[in-house]
Every structure is written in structure tokens, then in C-alpha cells.
Design a protein around this nucleic acid. Structure first.
Lengths: 201, 201, 201, 201
DNA sequence: AATGAATGAGTCTTCATTCAT
DNA sequence: TATGAATGAAGACTCATTCAT
């Protein structure tokens, strides 16, 4: 279930492959820090230790870089959800909630950049719906694996809701680390309560 | 509880008041549609039927306009929370959850523009913490009014969490209207379950 | 018979009108000197004594400026041909050839820039056919006014040929001035001979 | 009468000779299609099925490639004029005109690319005068061979004029093929008339 | 006070050319 | 020798902000 990675020219030499990874990482970091519009291509190239020309050798536009980044994020999440699906059967709601939240904590840094992109890059806005659909289907499948009695429709609705809540996780973790309230435990509690409530009858 | 509104020059005539409102509305609509960076001052002036010079007569910079907009939003929310506080005593969790969500649905359009600004405008990012604190204190007060046995600390934590969830509401409503899942009932359910869970000991 | 002048924003103040003219002249001169691709927008602005931003205030793109220039040229030629049409009746071939060539000598500087644009600007390439058609119809009308017995089809063919020859005139004049052969008298001779040959039966 | 061809390194193997030809052809086609400035070295290499590095192995710069192309064109024309010179004695004006025009029709594709270069490449602009002089001397010689009584000065002037007219031929042919007027017969007529007129007395 | 024009730093992107493997 | 990668100067264009009428 791989998504087209919109790289300009697939690198054909070892050096090129490395460069692409460096550029992607630099982009992710800067987009997360300063947002899509505010981040300049020159900054990205600089942080990756490359020249601007080198950046454009692999990504034909700022938007293409953003899309590649987004695809990378979506694929990572998809693969982690796939793993979770295997362990889902029989998982009680609180455990399930914890697993989902742990997953988001793992992809935190990627999520931060993806969040910065999802509203700003038109190419992403367009694909968004279908990508979101795929993720939700995975979550719904996990829910039904954990609670086989759950109806398909109820699972779909809950999955959508859960998807939205999960997006909050990185923000909450950030706030907590910055000396705010202990919000991660709160989401855990909230998500567990919600799943429990959905599952019961 | 009025916050300094960074307007260039307090409009001295009725016409001026109207102009400011028009400009603010135009800004709100465009920021919500296209984001802060992508929206130009010229666009805002045009949509408000004003000249660019006129816009700068009232708002000395793009950031000032954004801040005024944000302040307007925060004040509206604060006043609505104040109202809710009066009716809070004795409200059972599901009712309380519904009231909070209804409130967010009322300020939806304002919230959309505020969301576009909160990460992009440095002036807002800075004030954010204190503004957020005020809102949370209001929510905490409401929680304790509804459930007097709730400890102060627990109320503070729950209020923070609830604040984050409430921010999702406009997005969920939008998705629902666009033919997606019925997400508003889901948040209602989730928030009710969470509050219930928090309140119980 | 006016053609849409693709100016970005029609200037609304006296200063703006003057600026547009200055920019157009600067563009014409530079395109003629260095060609379309080689001429930079910054150069144009500089030669017009304006800032780059000022240039873009009136012409939204390099191509738009080029098109405006081309339109100006075409309109000037059209109006001169219209004048010539009035004096055409009864004009013997050599006189007619001379009048046409004189006309081209008058628009020389404009023609030089138009020539630089006609192959390079896609917007112009597209309109080219229709504009050319109009010019040819004017020339054909002139031919038939001068020689009433000329058939319509023969006039159309000759007009097309004459149009091409006339385009050479500025180049020939330039070469002659630069110390080359006296080519202008030669085209006069050639064009006269050709018209005579076309007209005879 | 070979002109120095500015090739980087004379290809030493058969494969190299073929490569050079392929690159030259690719360049000719692209320059004719899109013009000198708009055509990129990468495009040329691609169309020739070579790598950019390979292209630079044979031509040290874009300008060098253009010059080589131009030289090839000039040499072909020169050799064809030489052939024509042999058959010129006694040729009546209309025949002569036809021969010259036929010649241009034969080199059409080369001429198209040469035309794209002649104004854009400074190296060519410089040599242009001398090359043009050579061509004109050939044409003048042909004229005098056909009409021995023609004075040297008159021949030189006519040759220059004829050179300019001949450059139009490919354009006219193109227009004719694209469904326009039958212009090639018209130039034939025109050139015949002109030569006749020059020759008489 | 109101408005259109002016400004120019800053952004994305291209492309001829050079390098290193 | 052949090829992909690296480089960076340069160009079109944008837009917040300031001016002048």
C-alpha cells in the first residue's frame, strides 16, 4: 500500500540518496519550527548543508518537497497502525487507548511538520481526504479487532473521532514538557473513556 | 475585562467604526480561507471595499490587524464562558459538555480565523499563554461550579484538556457538513464521558 | 478597430499614465537592442527610472508588457495603413511601393522591438495570425484601390507577400546606415517591380 | 574553404563523430523550435540521448555549440552556391530566381535553427558580417555569370538584396504549408521580376 | 481623510557550467 | 571516458509598507 513519492528525479547514485534524506529531514525540521510559508528553500538547503541548486535537483518545487514529506509521514503512521492491528485482538479499551497514544508520541516530530503542511500545500489538501480515509479504516479495523461486537458504522464514526484526538497528542506532549499541565495522562484517560463508552452496547 | 485592542487610531466617527468592522470581517474571512501568510493586505482591503491606504489608516501593520482579530475572538469566548458560568451550578456532565460544545459552534467562524493566526503571528504566540490561562481558569471555575467536590488541581488539568478538545469542534462540524461522519455527536459523547470520569472521584 | 491592451491596472492618476508610457518606451528600446529573453525586467524599470515594483504595478508579467508593446505597434501600423488607403486610388505601382516603404521607415523603432517579440512571446505567437490577417486585408484593399482590375484572390496573395517584404525594411535601412549597400533603393525597386508584375493582367 | 569549427576536441573515434552529429542535430531542432535562449543544454543532451557531461565533452559551452551549428549551415549554403555558380552562365532571370529559391528550400531546416541563433549569440553576430560578405560575393558572381553585362557595383547591391529575400523563403514555405497563401510562387515571381529589372541596362 | 502609486528586500526557481566517481 | 551530482549567480515576481496628492 505504498503512495507515490513525488521526488523530482530519483537519485541514481549513493550520494544522491543520502542528499535526499538530508534534505527531507531539514525540511521537516524547519517546517515544524516555522511553518510552510515562512520557511525558505534556501534555509532548507543550508540546514542540509547543500546548495540551493542541489535541493532543486531532487525536488522540483517547494510544494513537491512538502508532499514528499507528507507522504513519508503518512506511510510511517500506516505501517505503525498495521503493527498495532496485529496486537489489537482482545486489547481492553484503556490499553488500546494507550497504544494509540504511544504511537503518536513516536511520530511526534514527523507529525509536527505534517501539521504545518496540511493546511498550506494545495497538493496535500487535495490528497488529504483519501489519505485520511485509509488511516481511519485502519483504526476502525483495530477497534473491531479489539471489540468484535462493535458494529461497522459505529467503528467508522469512532475511528474518525479518534483520528482527530490523536492529532492533538504531539501538541499536548509539547505543552506538558514546556512546564504546563500533565496533559498526556489526561488524553489517555479521555480516550480510554471514549472507547469504553463506544464499545459498551 | 477588556484587552488593549491594537487599533491604529480609535475611529472617531460612526463611519470609521463601520470601516474597522468591515476590515476586520474581511480579514477574518480571508485568514480563515487562505491562512495568514497567504492572505495579502491588498486582498483584505479589496474585500472590505476599501483602499490599501485606508486599511493602513486603521491598522498600522498586518500583525496589528491579526492581533485585533484575535483579541476580538478571545473576548467573545470569554464573555460566553462568563454567561455559561452563571448557569453552571448543578449542571450534570453531559449537559455541561453540550453547553461547551454549543458555545464553540457559535463562535465557529471567528475560531477559524483565530486558528489560522495562532501559529503564524508572533505577537499572538507571545500573548497566547496568558490568554489561554484566562480561558482555562474560566473553564475550571465552571467545572467546579458544576461539581463542587472537584479539587482545584484536577479541575485545572481537566480544563486544559477540555480547552484543547473544544478547539477541535469547528473542524469536526465542518467535516460533518461536508458529508463526513457525524462527528459532533461523537465529541459530545467523548467530552461527556471525560468530564464524568474526571468528576467521579 | 481597437485591440485589447493587456495592461494590468489601467493607471488612474496622471502620474500613472506617464509611468506606463515611460515603461513601454524603455521596454521597446531594450527588447529591440537585446531581444526579449535577454532583457530583464530590472533593466526595463531602471531605464524608465522606476522601481521594479512600479513596473509590476502596471504590467503583471514580462509577457504582458511585451504584448502591450506589440499591440501598440500593430495599432500604429493599422492606423497608418488606414491613412494610406485614402490616398491609394489611382496611385501607380512605384508610388505605392514607395508609400508602403516610407510607412515602414516611420515605424522602424517600434518594428524593431515587435520583431524581437514576435517569436519569443507565446501570447503574441497566438494572436499573430489574426493580427496579420487584419494587416493583410488592409494592404489588399490598398492594392485594389490603386488597381481596381486586380482580382480579390490575386490581391490577397500579393498582400501577404508584400507584408513579408515590408518587414525587411527596417533591417535594410539599418544595414545601409551602418555603411552597407544602399538597400532601401533596392527594395523600392523590387517592390515596385513586383506590384507592377502582379497588376499586369 | 573550411571554417574553423569550434569543437572542443575532435572526436577520435567513429562513435564520437556520430555523437557530435547527434548533438548538433538535437541542438538544431531545439533551437529552431524554441529559440536559443529558451533551449537548455540539458534538453539538448536529452534529445540526443546523451548525458549533460557528454555534451560538454564535445562542446565547451552553449555558444560553441551554436557556432558550430551556424558554421555547418553556412558551409552547406556556400557549397550549394558553388554548385549553382557552375550552372549559372546563360541562365535567364526567372530560372535563376527559381534555382536560388530551390536552394533555400533545401536548407530550410538548417536555416530555421541558424535564424534562431543569428541574433542571440554574440560570437555569431561578430562573424556575421564577414560570413555574409562571402555569401554575397558568391551570389554576385552568379548574377554576373548569368548576365555578363551587369556592372560589379550593381551586382553587389542586388546580391545583398537577394540575400535578404532568400532568408524569407523558409518562413514563406512554412506559412504556405500551414494552410496560408501560396507564397512560394509569389517569391519566385518577385525575385524574377527584381532580377530582370536589375539586369536590364 | 482617502486613495492610488512607489519602493525594494526577499522568495522561488532556472540553468550554464564544473566536479567527482 | 562517461555520467550524475553540485554549484550559485541571476531573473521573474510578490507584497508589506510608505508617500504624495
Amino acid at each position: 500500500m505504498s503512495i507515490e513519492a513525488p521526488i523530482a528525479k530519483a537519485p541514481q547514485r549513493a550520494r544522491g540518496v543520502q542528499r535526499v534524506a538530508e534534505l527531507l529531514d531539514a525540511g521537516a525540521a524547519l517546517f515544524a519550527e516555522n511553518g510552510y510559508e515562512t520557511t525558505t528553500m534556501t534555509q532548507i538547503a543550508q540546514r542540509a548543508g547543500a546548495s540551493i541548486g542541489s535541493l532543486y535537483q531532487f525536488f522540483p518545487s517547494k510544494e513537491a518537497l512538502a508532499e514528499a514529506l507528507f507522504v513519508r509521514y503518512v506511510e510511517r503512521v500506516a505501517s505503525m497502525l498495521e503493527d498495532l492491528a496485529k496486537r489489537a485482538p482482545g486489547l481492553p479499551p484503556p490499553r488500546l487507548a494507550d497504544r494509540l497514544i504511544d504511537l503518536m508520541l513516536k511520530v511526534r516530530s514527523d507529525r509536527d511538520s505534517a501539521a504545518a503542511l496540511s493546511g498550506s500545500v494545495s497538493g496535500i489538501v487535495e490528497r488529504r481526504k483519501s489519505l485520511r480515509g485509509a488511516t481511519r479504516r485502519q483504526i476502525a479495523a483495530i477497534l473491531r479487532a479489539a471489540s468484535p461486537r462493535l458494529r461497522e458504522k459505529a467503528a467508522a464514526e469512532a475511528a474518525a473521532m479518534i483520528g482527530h484526538v490523536l492529532k492533538l497528542v504531539p501538541t499536548l506532549a509539547k505543552e506538558q514538557e514546556d512546564g504546563g499541565q500533565p496533559l498526556v495522562p489526561q488524553v489517555r484517560k479521555m480516550l480510554a473513556a471514549y472507547i469504553e463508552c463506544v464499545v459498551k452496547r
